[in-house]
Design a protein around this nucleic acid. Sequence first.
DNA 1: TGCAACTGTAACTATATTTGTTACAGACGA
DNA 2: TCGTCTGTAACAAATATAGTTACAGTTGCA
Lengths: 169, 169
Amino acid sequence: MSTSSRFAVAVHVLTLMARADEEPLKSEQVAESVNTNAVVIRRMLCELADSNLVVSQTGSTGGSKLARLPERITLLDIYQAVESRGVFSLHRHPPNPDCPVGVNIGSVLNDVLDEVDSAVEGVLANMTLKDVVSRLKPCVSTANRKTVTPAANGKRKNLSRVQSVSARN
Amino acid sequence: MSTSSRFAVAVHVLTLMARADEEPLKSEQVAESVNTNAVVIRRMLCELADSNLVVSQTGSTGGSKLARLPERITLLDIYQAVESRGVFSLHRHPPNPDCPVGVNIGSVLNDVLDEVDSAVEGVLANMTLKDVVSRLKPCVSTANRKTVTPAANGKRKNLSRVQSVSARN
DNA sequence: TGCAACTGTAACTATATTTGTTACAGACGA
DNA sequence: TCGTCTGTAACAAATATAGTTACAGTTGCA
């Protein structure tokens, strides 16, 4: 399916800000936690700002912070801000219009794919950024230790979500 | 999100076979309806055969047909046969393990993404290939006309699913 | 038996999309 | 005015999907 990691990264970024409270974070700081380039983060922050999820300020004391309380930001808001297309795509090239199946399979599939999208959105609408922060909590307080709590290395139900155990470098 | 069209194509292919009844279809015929290369179809047929959704036969009178009745093949079966990964991915490179958020955001996200996957699977499990064929029916009988019934040009709720109106060549 | 018509598959190439990088203009506080 | 930010353009790298060519092996049939 080749999904992007944009949603995962966006949630990560906003989670950092939720925990930073009102303190604006610099793209460089965020990039360090996400483990990517600061420009990638800034690009994403622009999209999040377009959707009114964060506010950024330029200048020497600049940075970005949440535009509203974490409990008022759902994962659906985040998803819609950074993932434009739906879950599936139709054919890359349109099917043969001279074939009775080809000519209207797209219509049938669209209905199905809309249902799928709605289901996804339903799940995402039910969780807020605050919920994410809470679920994260268990490992905090004993700041910056290197050891990971065993439960923190959860595995997906299904397979390869990339990154899982050991990454590629 | 950059989803693939594999699911759409697979449903298309199996729909053709459902309508062909027991008559085996040649990859060339299928490719013509899907509007792609026969090898692309044969590759997909191999995957579908691995999942026991179709049976193929080599030789001069060969071809492929459904391995069981259309009412016994769900869209979930098809999805699982051709789309390996879940709907979303985690970070391409693992986040910074020295950051309290980075170290276990993956675990929280995994839970969410599992929920999303389950929701998608739930929707797909509720429709069979037979249902798809039925929904297709309205336009048949008056074979091979070029005009499309107005209702057949349905649009997605959201935007660009590719292919929509005019394609790219 | 030999041919023609298939499938299965390997090995590429082409195309698209996402991610990462470098560079720099402009904003802004001190 | 200077240093430190953001915003953004332009491009390179990485990845994944789709399309193409080529060919070995299978099978029905004359």
